[in-house]
């Protein structure tokens, strides 16, 4: 009898040990993020207007802009920046992180508290970024986590931006820079390669593709695509194709350029 008792005690000990396996700590899932709602006190157009060509402009007052995201880096053609636009215009916000689409969705409202950020230009396009440590660049990336937390605020997600329609040369103007546009029925007149761009190979570095489209009235818009785009090696439409093509309108000095988010923005008409 005494032995039985000993066995029971020992078995109880073992059972306790086995039960213990079940008590792994559980963690509640974090709350979904709550969109921020701020009231912009300046339009994107007016903010951009503060920049005077040639000198970086430090924003010293408590300015807030707000706009919808119109670009995505999901397919690799945008890199370390987003474009946002409000009713007055669009601007590149140089958030120096990769895969920004995870947190800044197309159509999502994003606010920027711009105090102590810098306006600068690259090829004539005004960008919003951080103070640059290098003289050759007017701005640098907003890339430290703390700085992003202080300046960039994610608002509500929403419908994607409706692109402005550009059907003729007369429709295109500097006020559309940084916004999403659709070039309607444009003709591919020249290309530096038959794919949208060229991915890196062991022998060759990645290369930009340039597809030149002509608007009604003769204006040329260059669709410039990064060799890091996931669709880089996809064939571009053949020369003389007519297409509708949607992307963010930019300018490099005097050349109109368009950067597409993905091939979804391309419809070949003939």
């Amino acid at each position: 009898m005494k032995n039985m008792k000993k066995i029971y005690i020992s078995l109880a000990l073992m059972a306790t040990a086995l039960l213990g396996q079940a008590c792994t700590e559980k963690f509640e899932n974090p709350e979904p993020f709550k969109p921020v709602a701020l009231t912009p006190n300046i339009t994107i157009k007016d903010l951009k207007a503060r920049y005077v060509s040639g000198t970086p402009y430090e924003i010293n007052d408590n300015l807030i802009i707000g706009g919808k995201v119109n670009s995505t880096d999901e397919f690799g053609n945008f890199y370390r920046s987003i474009y946002i636009q409000d009713a007055t215009g669009g601007i590149e916000v140089k958030i120096g992180k990769t895969t920004l689409y995870n947190e800044y969705k197309e159509g999502q409202t994003v606010y920027v508290k711009a105090r102590h950020l810098f306006l600068g230009a690259y090829g004539g396009m005004v960008q919003l970024g951080e103070k640059s440590a290098e003289a050759r660049y007017e701005t640098s990336y907003i890339e430290t986590d703390l700085r992003i937390k202080e300046t960039i605020f994610r608002g509500a997600t929403g419908e994607k931006v409706v692109p402005a329609q550009i059907t003729a040369s007369s429709d295109i103007h500097n006020g559309l820079l940084g916004t999403l546009v659709t070039l309607k029925e444009v003709t591919l007149v020249d290309q530096n390669m038959t794919t949208w761009a060229r991915k890196a190979t062991p022998e060759l570095e990645a290369g930009y593709g340039e597809q030149k489209f002509k608007l009604e009235g003769g204006t040329i818009v260059v669709v410039r695509t990064s060799g890091y785009a996931k669709f880089a090696n996809q064939p571009a439409p053949p020369l003389n194709s007519k297409v509708d093509i949607t992307g963010v309108l930019t300018k490099f000095n005097s050349t109109w350029q368009l950067a597409i988010n993905s091939l979804e923005g391309v419809t070949v008409l003939n």
Partner: peptide, 24 residues
Amino acid sequence: DPYKAAYIREGWLSDWNIRQINWD
């Protein structure tokens, strides 16, 4: 870029979500 280096440091010292894994 000492300006950014200082911000990195400040982030590490002031924000657990920067210093550690940001599960949220």
